[in-house]
Write a protein that binds this DNA or RNA. Structure first.
Lengths: 334, 334
DNA sequence: GTCGCCTTTGCAAGCGTGTGCAAATGCTGC
DNA sequence: GCAGCATTTGCACACGCTTGCAAAGGCGAC
């Protein structure tokens, strides 16, 4: 362990026989340096192992280059897929991602977010289901740009990226009816996340337009286990449904497993199932789940390109993306 | 958008009627401030919405408080679970996580890592399967502490956290034999990750000790699809195995699905299957996979507690954790 | 050679913070 | 009131970098 850890621009300057400013300008894009000195600096920097100190640069420029990702349920297939896409896009744009985990609800979220503010993050991307207003407020008040993914927020300023949840729900209702289903159900969690509620309301409305009622069942968090519980509740009814639209794929997987293994039902012969997200497991042959694909790469691209733009135009601060229906084998016909 | 974004300690000092040092000391643990001025400062800071600038603090202290997480395949169940645990532990310790995605192998990894060095990250945690030496070298050369999870590296300095892979492999070999299996196989990816190879070699050695040979099949990346391909290769052999130990749960899921749906085989009656990681899907009732649990929370706790310790003792720089066998229904008996 | 112009260079101020040092303050015991 | 001591406070420098400004340098035209 040497005490003197990092080399400074000063040392590079001395080695290259130029001034400290020249070193700084060499590593600042758009600065005026002659090719000759530039090369001398680069050589010296390479030899000494110099890296520009972004803490100091951020201090001067009042712009840290840090983007803060605020995520809950990181271990979940959909969230982690989105996280992967976002980090990749950010790296491509020369930004760096700071990750805030909001699973614990005991105020550690607030703490973590303050932490990010202390690092003067340029922007925050919220892909957490939590509808906690205080989080977004804190970001905006500290001059950060803000991207909200799959959330409902009518404030000016942040970029809002949403899917056509209600339209997708209508499409799947039609598909169910076309498959001959008459008793529709919707499986949801109790989370109350805006996008999940949009799917629910869209489905109910579309069914009503087709002259059908919908049994709505909600339980717990948005996970596999909740899907099993909802199946328990729906499949023990006298008027058992013959088609279920699940708010997420995880719910759908739990539902299908319970239907098949606990109630010995055949999917799709006795009951049709659809999900949302198109997580990897939906394509596994044990499920073959018909579902809507979240365009995670497009979402990430939209988010990052808006973040790195110099000017945020307030007029187009909403992006509405289309969720493609991925047809597999959990609905009859097709 | 106001031009003057953040309040500085100077402004807080003026509002509180004290010197700027007093403000600084108020937010520095272990500094000497009288309770009276301390309270004045806190009040003024609260009123003005002051947050200590960690860029500046890091510059002074030569210690940024940033921990860099270097991860590949973030979207994978096991990796994202570990990521979740790590971020949570880091936040509990007042550190902040910077996320580096190493999926792209086109040098963007190197770029991203340099990025982290520029931010003077105090330490890096590598949970990437990539055995790329240059990454670890770069971290160490720049004075970062380093934690390697499930990797094989005999260098001095970094903390190495490993599981008892070989021992686990031996235990599962015994379980297979006890279930009456005689033709053992091992399914692996071609990744060549040290921990995966340890499982393979441990399994082969244990089988040999029991007087049995092992058919080893390797294919592609460590994912579901590879499991299907390996099943294709193993189950079309004349000497079809009656027990398969898969290097990861994802491989096992793919293998089971192919065995059941493509080869119409019954698990565990015709073939026993075991995996490794205990991802969430292993417990889903379509799989009921008997597998070894990666103690992600313990791993994260060990990593973070070593990182935040003042002194790194070089004598105990290796942590070997036990992988519990989680018994489900993919092996007969039990 | 001299002038004018454009590019390159160095100087120095400043970003917001931590901290050693010395001065100031408060407190105790006489 | 005063000496003696512990605690608190402010000053000023340092951290590594960017950047405005003015001086220096290069170059072609006369």
């Amino acid at each position: 362990m040497s005490q003197k850890l990092f080399v400074s621009a000063q040392e590079v300057a001395e080695k290259a026989g130029v001034s400290r400013s020249a070193v700084s300008r060499t590593f600042t894009s758009g600065a005026s340096v002659s090719p000759k000195t530039r090369q001398k600096v680069l050589d010296a920097a390479e030899a000494l192992g110099y890296h520009v100190n972004h803490l100091a640069r951020g201090l001067m420029r009042n712009e840290s280059g840090i983007i803060c990702l605020i995520v809950s349920e990181i271990g979940t297939p959909y969230r982690s897929a989105l996280l992967r896409a976002l980090t990749q896009q950010l790296q491509n744009s020369g930004k760096v991602a700071m990750l805030i985990n909001t699973d614990r609800s005991d105020g550690s979220v607030d703490l973590a977010l303050r932490q990010a503010i202390r690092y003067r993050a340029d922007a925050s991307v919220i892909l957490s289901g939590l509808p906690d207003k205080s989080i977004t407020d804190l970001c905006l008040k500290n001059g950060q740009r803000l991207v909200l993914i799959n959330r409902d927020d009518d404030r000016e300023g942040p970029l809002k990226i949403n899917l056509d949840d209600a339209d997708a729900a209508a499409r799947i209702a039609t598909a169910f009816v076309r498959a001959g289903c008459r008793k529709l159900a919707f499986a949801n969690s109790q989370a109350g996340t805006p996008s999940l509620m949009a799917r629910e309301h869209g489905f109910v409305a579309a069914a009503k337009a087709l002259g059908l009622d919908v049994i709505v069942e909600r339980f717990g968090h948005t996970g596999y286990e909740s899907g099993r519980v909802v199946a328990q509740q729906l499949l023990t009814r006298k008027d058992r449904p013959d088609a279920v639209f699940c708010a997420t794929d995880l719910l759908a997987c739990g539902f299908m497993d319970a239907a098949r293994h606990q109630f010995s039902m055949s999917v799709p012969d006795q009951i049709c199932v659809a999900g949302f997200d198109d997580i990897e497991q939906a394509s596994w042959s044990s499920y073959g789940l018909t579902t809507f694909a979240q365009p995670v790469d497009t979402i990430a691209r939209e988010a990052v390109s808006w973040l790195v733009a110099e000017t945020a135009e307030p007029e187009n601060d909403t992006v509405r993306l289309h969720a493609d229906l991925v047809w597999r084998t959990s609905i009859r016909g097709g």
